[in-house]
Amino acid sequence: MPEYGYFLSCEEFGPAELVEQARMAEQAGFRSLWISDHYHPWNSAQGQSPFVWSVIGAISQAVSLPIETAVTCPTVRIHPAVVAQAAATSAVMTNGRFRLGVGSGEALNEHVVGHTWPPADVRLEMLEEAILIMRRLFTGEEVTHHGTHYTVENARLYTVPDEPVPIDISGFGPKATALAARAGDGYITMMPETDMVEQFRKGGGGTKPVSGGTKVCWGTDRAEAVRTVRRLWSNEFLPGEMGQVLPSPSHFEQLAPLITEEMIARNAVCGDDADEHVAALTAFADAGFDVVYVNQIGPEQRGFFDFYRTKVLPRLSGN
């Protein structure tokens, strides 16, 4: 059965709030943490976007839970040699309880340094080369690399963990899933799709861990919870590649009217029906996931953690 973790949202909360949520997650019985890595929130209503590596440092001193970025894009905004240093330091600070989750990124976060946002196939090429560089640096040896997309000269990480940082790769389509199977230490995806898990395992992933995440909005008033989701996370319900190619929060705000409360009520877990929350997480277990992370949307954080501690996690065997 899967392990259950909590997904910290850097788009919606500031650093001190995220550290406190990590504490509450540990007290509630969650076994691990994900944390998002963004330069911008998806919209102004979310309202935050702290530098994830600073927050990880603080969390490492506040709780003993393993933590993973979900996910970092190590290709455009930050050079992979610098991401490798940040990840290695995070692993040292957590006594080896850090995993680096990576993906091909979104224009929303990456275009801010002025580079042209490349098409998906090129982004995956860049990601694979970035992973190669980071793995070499995690050895603590000096690295010089002249590749298609990156140059590294005489780089060496002096602060490294005893074991190389595991790198899990995010994938939502066949090409990215194939890359995860070929080059990753694990696979990350956000939907409980058995086909994608099977592609990963048969494509070379074998028994490596598969992790997934979902968002819920706990609250005693279901209608109010639906409104909270629409206000803060309507971007979750946009179709196609918009999430990868739109460059600013204002663009996502312009599309928000397309997402109705009825759509959210049909497709999101809202309210305080424990059966509904359990079913959403069990869907990932049924699809073959090893770890499932859940994020609470909105301000009702303490009520959420009390609810999961008493009503949800005890019903999920293996937690």
Rank of each mutant, 00 (worst) to 15 (best):
D162C: 12
W233R: 15
A176G: 14
F305P: 01
H40E: 05
V102T: 11
L124S: 02
L65E: 01
G206S: 08
M126Q: 14
G288D: 01
I169S: 10
A58H: 10
E68F: 07
F30R: 01
F304D: 00
T116I: 15
S317N: 15
D121Q: 09
H145C: 10
A84E: 00
S104W: 09
L124K: 01
L127K: 00
T89C: 03
L65I: 05
E241L: 14
G205H: 01
V113C: 10
M134H: 04
D290F: 01
V113G: 08
E153P: 01
A155Q: 05
R302Y: 08
V71W: 07
G186F: 09
V63K: 09
S44V: 03
M126P: 06
I297P: 02
G147N: 09
G204S: 11
R156G: 11
A225E: 09
E125L: 00
R156I: 11
P239T: 11
Q48I: 04
G184I: 07
P209E: 07
F252R: 00
Y4V: 06
R302I: 05
R309S: 08
R182W: 08
N235D: 11
A107Q: 09
P192Q: 02
V229D: 10
E12Q: 15
V113A: 06
F284W: 06
S49T: 06
